[in-house]
Design a protein around this nucleic acid. Sequence first.
DNA 1: TGACATAATATGTGCATACATAATAATCAA
DNA 2: TTGATTATTATGTATGCACATATTATGTCA
Lengths: 233, 233
Amino acid sequence: MTETARLSWKDVRDAIHARILDSTYGPGDKLPKDQCLAEQLGCARTTVQRAMRDLSDSGIVERRRKGGTHVRADPVTRATLDIPITRKEVEQKGAVYGYQLVNLGSLEAPLAVRTKFELSGPTTMLHVEALHLADHRPYIFEDRWVSIDTVPEIADVDLSVESANEWLVRNRPYSRCDLRFYAIKASKRHARLLDIAPDEALFVMERTTWIGTKPITTVKAVTTPGYQLLTEI
Amino acid sequence: MTETARLSWKDVRDAIHARILDSTYGPGDKLPKDQCLAEQLGCARTTVQRAMRDLSDSGIVERRRKGGTHVRADPVTRATLDIPITRKEVEQKGAVYGYQLVNLGSLEAPLAVRTKFELSGPTTMLHVEALHLADHRPYIFEDRWVSIDTVPEIADVDLSVESANEWLVRNRPYSRCDLRFYAIKASKRHARLLDIAPDEALFVMERTTWIGTKPITTVKAVTTPGYQLLTEI
DNA sequence: TGACATAATATGTGCATACATAATAATCAA
DNA sequence: TTGATTATTATGTATGCACATATTATGTCA
């Protein structure tokens, strides 16, 4: 009944977060310095530091050397997205995964692709179009360009059997990844491939990856109507 | 020329990451234990721990007590999304921000809303529809429900002047937030409000927030054609 | 006054150490 | 063989301390 267990950094984080939530410290306010909070709460400064890093990662506070710690004045909604391999995603839902190569060829990358990769000159790339199926129905149509320079081994992969999505993600780790999400109206070709009505609204996920400064792949994943992307809870 | 500067945890992280990238350790492989890596690299275990936590947060490795550290067998694309206040987003683009209240009323929350909040009984909530403008053109249409129980002060806010988006985010921090993204076909009402053609494909962001277990607000932000959501670089 | 060097300061990092915790492996009883 | 108990082990956490680094505040000189 005298001393309870020592404080964990999560306790400290929650204590500080609670003070922000109950407006003890409002948006833009400066928080006491680590050392001070450590004394107030009865722990080491290292523990406060650990807690603060978490709050900072979550976008709740901002820290600057010498400047101190402030509650973010313009809060942002910060979330972490996990995009799994499509096969895993389908299996996760309890559906049967299927894969179907639609089109494959080595050709000049269009300007849009070169722009994504920040390439200037003309470049030949591998173009792969494929369907991912869930329970034998179209699920996602992927339109992919792969850098032959960076990933020459892709030529030896039988893309009619194994999806480029899976092979690349397993064999070609990346060091940089850009994502973008938007909506498009289904073209006639999309409608035919995905077996839906034309003019349907489709959710699109675009992903571009590099290893160092060298481009690996860029893929446009066109989902079927009803598809939703959720954040982790 | 004997001893260089001591290793930073970022150096250690990059060294380990490099070994994963060059397939010294492939997907699913077990990594040496922290202590061992610390000796190999010439630093304290704490430093390896710090590096490993970062790799773990990035989804590159998985760690389990006693089980050790493994390179993720099923890599996921993990990214952090920042969704700012809409006004800030518009101003960031160098456009003039505008706001326009479309509809306001206190009424019975529909089932879809109650489901999102995991509420069982009938509940009266504040329903707010508003337009965010960029350079005097419609930018985002927001369809929002606010819990009057949790946020009674919302009744005193003049929502014809200040957006609920901004007031809530500044005055009502949340402890939990769910996000979902998808595409819809513009209804006639959407078309009229957003000044676009009907049947256009629109990108939608839905956000639901709680404080503890108490619901705060759920909002469906319907964007105009061409809108793209990007990850941070 | 303004430019530039200098001091002060809050956060960031590295390390040694001790102990906590979770998950596995080993052990032993029934 | 099975099932419960116990030991082992790799990661996780807390602490004190010293020093690094970035940034602000101060002071100095032209």
